[in-house]
């Protein structure tokens, strides 16, 4: 594929983080002597997030959003493409500088903190690794800031509730004062009442610390609540990007429509969303080289699977589809 997905966006400010045409391919061997197959986990993904805004990234399991975020925080090197943060090439930076630019927050607060270390120790650890001073005091301040009682300084993660653990993980990610925070499903493992607390905290921290955020989730309602813009991914590619309310109200790509349509709202009286039956999700190995959604798409024509879909740009929105007029009709 030669045409990268270059989003023609009218970004009001310089992007704080810019992913350019990221690609990552895994070679998967089936059985010991099987022929290795190429799995395009991320296939030419570009994202820009202006300073101080939040980009929501949605998609279902296997769409490559976690792989993409691993590359964005520098845990994984892409096969090609680049990540720049505040104008710096992330992969060219020394580790000590990289960690002050971008930090991740993970989904499972149970697994995100080493169970044998104390909370204060965990929160202060990034500073200790990078030669900070006054570590204990700063750790206490950060705990206070994320609403974690400082009496838990000497507690072990196992003694905290799920919400408290997620607060500790957030404190740890923020103690180096990074510019960008990548939240990978940060509330998926939490109960709804706790989810609200953590979302409120993230919104508050974003405002107070002028954070730029990428918020990855499969929960569209949560993404809509916290994001300025939303990008939808399907099998390694971005299929649509739009301002959050617009994406929810008028999704344009058939897959975005399917996702929005399948989201259940807590209001009775809506019928169960109609879904195409007997359509198993496409095998990522069998995904066509053209539009990858074509095998599941109600509007697809045979030609859709042959070439990559062209970008359709509208003010503040872009999506990639061969047959936009058929979809809207």
């Amino acid at each position: 594929m030669t045409a990268p997905q270059t989003a023609q966006m009218t970004a009001p400010r310089q992007p704080m983080i810019h992913l350019r045409d990221l690609r990552k391919t895994y070679s998967v061997r089936q059985g010991m002597f099987g022929k290795p197959k190429e799995l395009h986990a991320v296939d030419g993904l570009s994202l820009e997030v202006p300073e101080g805004t939040t980009l929501g990234l949605v998609g279902e399991s296997g769409c490559g959003k976690s792989t993409a975020m691993s590359m964005a925080v520098g845990l994984l090197r892409p096969d090609s493409g680049s990540v720049s943060i505040g104008g710096h090439d992330l992969y060219a930076l020394p580790v000590a500088e990289r960690v002050r630019l971008i930090q991740p927050v993970f989904q499972n607060p149970r697994a995100a903190l080493n169970p044998v270390r104390r909370i204060g120790d965990l929160v202060g650890q990034p500073l200790r690794l990078h030669g900070g001073r006054d570590i204990a005091r700063k750790a206490r301040e950060m705990m206070d800031r994320v609403g974690l009682p400082t009496r838990l300084f000497d507690a072990y993660p196992g003694e905290l509730s799920g919400g408290q653990r997620q607060r500790a993980a957030i404190a740890r990610a923020l103690i180096l004062e990074p510019k960008v925070l990548v939240c990978d499903e940060p509330t998926s493992a939490l109960d709804v009442s706790v989810q609200a607390q953590v979302l409120n905290l993230l919104l508050e921290l974003k405002r107070d610390m002028q954070l730029t955020m990428i918020f990855v989730s499969h929960n569209l309602a949560v993404v809509e609540h916290v994001s300025d813009r939303v990008a939808v991914m399907y099998l390694g590619r971005k299929v649509e990007e739009a301002p959050a309310p617009a994406l929810f109200k008028t999704p344009r790509h058939p897959y975005s429509r399917m996702l929005v349509g399948a989201t259940l709202v807590p209001e009775p009286g809506h019928p169960l969303p109609a879904q195409p039956k007997g359509q198993p999700p496409a095998d990522p190995f069998l995904a066509p080289m053209g539009c990858r959604f074509a095998p599941r798409c109600a509007f697809a024509q045979p030609s859709c699977a042959e070439r990559p879909a062209p970008a359709i740009t509208e003010p503040a929105r872009s999506f990639w589809c061969h047959r936009p007029e058929a979809v809207t009709a």
Binding site: G163, S193, L203, A221, E224, V226, P245, V265
Partner: peptide, 23 residues
């Protein structure tokens, strides 16, 4: 519980959700 979850079109994006305090 009902108000703690964001509902597109009902909750205002970016505003604090009324969370249940305590545990």
């Amino acid at each position: 519980l009902m108000v703690a979850i964001p509902v597109p079109g009902r909750t205002r994006p970016g505003t604090p959700l009324p969370a249940i305090s305590g545990r």
